[in-house]
């Protein structure tokens, strides 16, 4: 049960990643691989700052800003220098690998004995329920602090979800969505599509870096490798979220991405529990996303064929 709580918490932390990928993949229609670098960037900035004695909240905010800059760079390379979006992402991701090593000074920074944002949540648990060490959930006894950490992360992710929703429903956000949908149209309406793309990717990677920062603090270390495969991971979450809902409106898509991330993490936890080799994890994730991308096309084709026969 405790394992399950942990899996849900990580799923929620990675929901911030899923929201970032939702912006690049679904709003701007391209898989922005900067994500893999900016997730690690968020982790390495926050971990190094915390170890250096900075306030963990400040460290997390700086991590978020770092992701923002990384995403903006990809956007600038893509729009101002007219380099293909995927390639722009690859360039920034590759550069970030070195930057992350410089930020951390080594390939791994442990945070076990440090006070982090997660410590704040633990303090919150002590303050809310003084003296209570464990709680019972469905007949299992669970450390109370785990529940409070889960709840706190849930609240934070929800807040970001709501902010994104309100943003994309605003005049400005609507213009940003239109930029991803039809650039010619929105340019004719007076919108600078280049700035929109730069800003959109910046926001996307800011969320992803935040996800990395919180993840590092939760798991107790930052590692230069931790971003690898995260783009596909985020895509899987977004796709699961879309499969869960029938309504494709913005609010549902954002909610779907959040819950998609949690469900995907739970599926992985269960698969590992019943004996899946952890080395196969990324292979299976990639296969899953491949199938999820191809399946709708095959179904459509079959539908057309059966209509032709009729």
């Amino acid at each position: 049960m405790s394992l399950l709580i942990g899996a849900v918490t990580i799923g929620l932390i990675l929901a911030l990643l899923a929201l970032g990928i939702f912006i690049s993949f679904r709003i701007f229609n391209f898989a922005d691989i900067t994500a893999e670098g900016s997730l690690t960037l968020g982790a390495s900035i926050s971990a190094s700052m915390i170890v250096a004695g900075f306030n963990p909240l400040l460290a997390t905010l700086v991590a978020l800003a770092g992701g923002f800059i990384a995403g903006a760079l990809t956007g600038i390379i893509h729009t101002k220098f007219e380099i293909n979006g995927l390639l722009s992402g690859i360039l920034v991701m590759t550069a970030l690998y070195s930057i992350n090593l410089h930020v951390m000074g080594k390939s791994n920074v442990p945070l076990m004995s440090e006070s982090t944002v997660i410590t704040y949540f633990e303090d919150l648990a002590k303050w809310l329920m003084p003296g209570t060490e464990t709680m019972s959930l469905f007949g299992n006894s669970i450390p109370a602090k785990d529940i409070i950490i889960l709840a706190s992360v849930f609240v934070i992710v929800s807040i970001f979800g709501v902010i994104l929703y309100v943003f994309f429903k605003s005049n400005f956000g609507t213009a940003m969505r239109a930029t991803g949908n039809n650039q010619q149209m929105i340019r004719a309406q007076g919108v600078n599509t280049k700035s929109m793309i730069i800003l959109g990717l910046a926001v996307s990677n800011a969320l992803i870096a935040l996800s990395g920062a919180v993840l590092a603090q939760f798991q107790g270390f930052a590692d230069v490798q931790m971003g690898i495969g995260m783009l596909v991971w985020g895509l899987a979450s977004v796709i699961i979220g879309e499969a869960l809902i029938s309504d494709k409106s913005l609010g549902f898509l954002i909610t779907g991405a959040i819950f998609g991330s949690v469900i995907f993490r739970l599926l992985v936890a269960v698969a590992l529990r019943i004996g899946m080799n952890p080395n196969d994890l990324k292979l299976i994730t990639a296969l899953f996303v491949f199938i999820a991308l191809v399946l709708p096309k095959i179904l459509k084709k079959n539908k057309m064929k059966s209509m032709e026969i009729k």
Partner: peptide
């Protein structure tokens, strides 16, 4: 949404509800 985008052609686009 398309109309609201056109109703602000060339104008400042705020963070207000579209």
């Amino acid at each position: 949404e398309n109309i609201t985008l056109a109703a602000k052609r060339g104008m400042h686009r705020s963070l207000g509800w579209a």
